[in-house]
Design a protein around this nucleic acid. Structure first.
Lengths: 240, 240
DNA sequence: GCAAAAGTGTTTGACATACACCCATGC
DNA sequence: GCATGGGTGTATGTCAAACACTTTTGC
């Protein structure tokens, strides 16, 4: 509907025309999980200002595009993934946050499985995974976005099964525990953790074992989305 | 910094210039509490499109203005209040949400005390309080914003003492309970409620009674911000 | 003296926490 | 046979939920 790019499109009503327009961006805080710690996808900024510095992956929102679609577009361009867990974090709207020109940014965080994304594509875009506990300096307010996202993740993980978005389809209980330890930044008791997780009856035990981290091997499980949905609809209070 | 209104300001870098600019608005979901129920401040829209219909109170964000400042400005213009509790809700960024022109809006909700705002000013602006359980139809996605804000209020009220922002400085325990019942939309047991609230030691009992709703009268209390801050800083888990 | 709201304690069950040992296997 | 991580059960304390009667006072 707002197609013309050469000539500036015109607002339909006088009232709007006197008002200021500005750039609207979206920045993606993309998390992964591996080897016991959370990872963040960053890349080297390719445009002035601040060219060459570490940055989150973002884009300007186009006139004909939803804000959430813009973030999904960016994520797909870089990782090849669609149908990824992604939620709005908050808006970064301080007037002078971007030295280039007035630009607000809507932070959106995504959780992806490190065994599923397109590694070549990521490389082509110069994107790099960093351990969240060992991040380089990031441009603008991007570090704040990451910190906010980690806080939000901590809050959300408690009452919603978003942790599973970060693990492979098949995972072991020790892996799951290690993930929650990374999110909550504290050690958990394995007996209590297992008890609580199992009590919800949303894990399907498989006949396979994962022997990559022990001789005995740990049983693999899958998250049972259907049962979870049913529970939630009936008012169940899910908590990990 | 971005002052010129007649001539469109120019972005400093080529990269920006090819991108789309759009209007950024903020809409305020302003809640009050009285007579056992939550109220929402709405007004009749004065500009096309949708002139004359019920709407939230909002404004376009100016180039030199923070998004949060814009919301505070609107709130002060209409109620005369500053230093009001206000937080970002979320961004409404669907491409065709505003028929006038591409415009995203950042919803921000505010909690105010109905005994403190400037009633004349509110009237001058044609603003009207509605019971949230009996709202008229609102323009655009404003009804969605209200519903989202009510959800958020329910979540936030549990772990943060934001309820007190809606009551007069001095309030009774039954008033406080009635407020929480309105927020949670469910009745609470008065013995358990009082026990829990008092257990935090953040209420200061006054020597006055409020007799407006009973012959016996109920003691008035004040919220003890200082003690609350100390508790929180020391990691206390506040919950109502 | 009675209606109407304010104020007060105890019991119960559910759940979070703390805690230590055996199991299976590859080397 | 031993080192390594996987897997299990019980006891204790804390806290939320349920529940009913007395107090005060204006009329």
């Amino acid at each position: 509907m707002y197609k013309e790019k050469e000539q500036e499109p015109v607002a339909l009503y006088d009232f709007y025309q006197q008002k200021d327009k500005m750039y609207v961006a979206t920045d993606c805080i993309i998390f992964g999980f591996d080897s016991g710690s959370l990872k963040l996808l960053t890349f080297k900024r390719r445009v002035e200002p601040l060219k060459g510095e570490w940055s989150l992956i973002g884009s300007f929102v186009k006139l004909e595009e939803d804000v959430s679609s813009a973030a999904k577009r960016v994520l797909e361009e870089i990782t090849g993934l669609t149908n990824v867990f992604m939620e709005e974090l908050k808006t970064y709207g301080v007037a002078d946050r971007d030295p280039g020109y007035r630009c607000i940014s809507i932070g959106q965080y995504a959780l992806i499985r490190l065994n599923e994304y397109d590694k070549e594509l990521v490389e082509q875009h110069g994107a790099v995974w960093h351990d969240v506990n060992d991040l380089p300096e990031l441009v603008l307010d991007h570090r704040q976005m990451v910190d906010d996202a980690l806080e939000e993740l901590k809050r959300k993980a408690r009452y919603r099964p978003i942790g599973f978005e970060l693990l492979p389809e098949k995972f072991t209980i020790p892996q799951l525990q290690s993930l929650y330890e990374a999110i909550y930044q504290k050690e958990l008791d394995s007996r209590n953790f297992r008890k609580k997780v199992m009590s919800h009856n949303v894990l399907i035990k498989l006949d396979e074992k994962d022997k990559s981290s022990s001789k005995r091997g740990a049983y693999l499980y899958k998250f049972d989305h259907d049962t979870y949905e049913k529970l939630i609809r009936s008012g169940y209070n899910f908590e990990i």
